[in-house]
Design a protein around this nucleic acid. Structure first.
Lengths: 165, 165
DNA sequence: TATTGTTATACTCTATAACTATA
DNA sequence: TATAGTTATAGAGTATAACAATA
């Protein structure tokens, strides 16, 4: 574990080190991803969050803004101006839901789908840059484990009740 | 999101889905960690970032503020008021570097070391909560892979030159 | 001239409350 | 009363520039 020099304060020996800290690793990976992904989504109004919205819109029936917000784990208040921006650039459209006059259905336009595919290619390259030191197997392993934790995290955050430890 | 019904828009079949998106997973894991870790570091002035500072201080020689900032990948401008806060609570001390009158050495106090160990126990429980759906092997695997990516990310972010593709 | 620490400023992201129109 | 969408505001976190003291 590369505890090269002095450990007079009992640091590394007790597992107390920055490079083995989960919070530090998450912070570093998160900021590194943002760094490499920023230019990939630079021409997308709304940036990385807008990309997630487009991905969520790419399949299935047109969702309401609230359903969309829950799907990508964004607040519905940010969904409003995110969609404002995307709609102003003709990447999505909003139409009234015929079944519920409070709700609006969100649809991906053809231009939006095209743009999504462009951004997606850029992002694939950026992700490869982030995981450059991992071989194919390890990269897939990391993606899979992250996805699993992400999904359980989404489920548990969506369920605010039932806290019987 | 249970891709049970229609895939008429060729979403999942081309790998274009939210639950397999690396950026989404990183975002979710990052926010989930922040959620579970927040109360663990609630009584620490400066929160999660202050914890990283204390960890970095727990071993080795007392670093300068700049060296400390580089070690935890924080800006030196935030290090200033982070240390202001920690010092005001007697968790760290600053003293002039006898070898360089511009620099100040940062030291962990006994109270700081005690507090660090308390927070560390809380964080261990919070991390377990985050990784609850992973068995011991998978959890270690994820920690290891994240740490590897984090370290290469730190190295590459610290070296802004040498961009010969 | 370059570096250490500090201060100030701005921008992004996030969180919350309040309002409307519908149900 | 509750829900969908909107608007406004406040707070973290981050990034940058400028400054004083020292090298």
């Amino acid at each position: 574990m590369s505890a090269s020099t002095s450990d007079k304060h009992a640091g590394e020996s007790s597992g107390l080190a920055l490079d083995t800290d989960l919070g530090w690793a998450i912070r570093m990976v998160s900021s590194a991803f943002r760094r490499v992904a920023t230019e990939s989504v630079a021409d997308l109004p709304g940036g990385a969050r807008a990309y997630l919205v487009l991905v969520a819109l790419a399949s299935g029936e047109p969702p309401s803004q609230l359903a969309l917000a829950k799907a990508v784990s964004l607040d519905r208040t940010v969904m409003t101006y995110l969609l404002d921006d995307l709609e102003a650039h003709n990447l999505v459209t909003r139409r009234p839901d015929p079944r519920d006059r409070r709700a609006r259905q969100v649809l991906l336009t053809d231009a939006g789908r095209t743009r999504l595919n462009q951004v997606r290619e850029n992002l694939a390259a950026a992700e490869a840059k982030l995981l450059v030191d991992l071989d194919e197997h390890d990269a897939l392993q990391l993606r899979t484990l992250l996805a699993r934790v992400a999904q359980t995290a989404q489920s548990s955050s969506a369920a605010p009740a039932e806290t019987d430890c």
